[in-house]
Amino acid sequence: MTHARPGATMTHARHGATRTHARHGATTTRGRFVRIAMLAGFAFLWLPIGLLVAYAFSADRIPFQWGGFSLRWFAALAANERLVEAALRSLRIAAGAATLAVALGGVAGWALARFGPFRGRAAFGALIGAPLVLPEVVTGLSLLLLFVALEGLTGWPAGRGATTVLLAHATLGAAFVAVVVQARLAETDRSLEEAAMDLGATPLAAFRTITLPLVAPALAAGWLLAFTLSLDDVVIASFVSGPAGTTLPMELFSMLRRGLTPEVNALGAVVVLGVGAVLAVVALLLRPR
């Protein structure tokens, strides 16, 4: 800005030139500001993750102290059976819960979008969406009570473990899937299905050839959402899990109490790289043709 200031005191004839000058100065200032803001934003988002990944390669025993480059904690992680097992169990639970959530939530979303104003529709919609607004503590506790009562009555589920966590996460995920699917169907012209039937498709064929392909992106998005929610959750899992059902977030929490080792950093780095790879694949699949 300062280099525009002398222009302001100059003659009238040069006023126009001065103004252009001033505007030019403003643009570069704004440009610089935007660039700095952008860098700050990226730093805010990426610095913690970057630090985590960087410290994963540190040789030092303390997780937040640099002790030279080393891969020893990756080796230690691979050797830590507890952690590896919890991670694999979490992935299995997440995949199972997401699949179940897509099946249940997909059907629920379809009913909400397509079955007209049936009796109890409002109550059904509210109940399906309840896990979205209920505190996870409440969801977790209520599911725990349900599982215990169910075991007392029927003998199933026998104790609590990976199965109960999977069912609980499927409940949570189904709420998200139902919302996504309902929204997608609501913006899909209903006469498409009627047109298919008019052209000779049975309702099942119309669903398979028209409805399903059109909601497929919503189902995929819902699956990924439910998968992430399950991987992420520690509250509900703590309520409904048992001795043989410790998930990765639960394991990490208990490690926190016993004292962290840089294995956790290594694990974080592996997760970040894994997620990055999956996102890259998804972006590749969804890129506009």
Binding site: D189, S191, L192, E194, A195, M197, T202, L214
Partner: peptide, 20 residues
Amino acid sequence: MPPWARPVNMMFQSYALFPH
């Protein structure tokens, strides 16, 4: 007779072309 069995076809006001 259900719509898929009727020898009658319809052109919808919105055309209802399958977008995919």
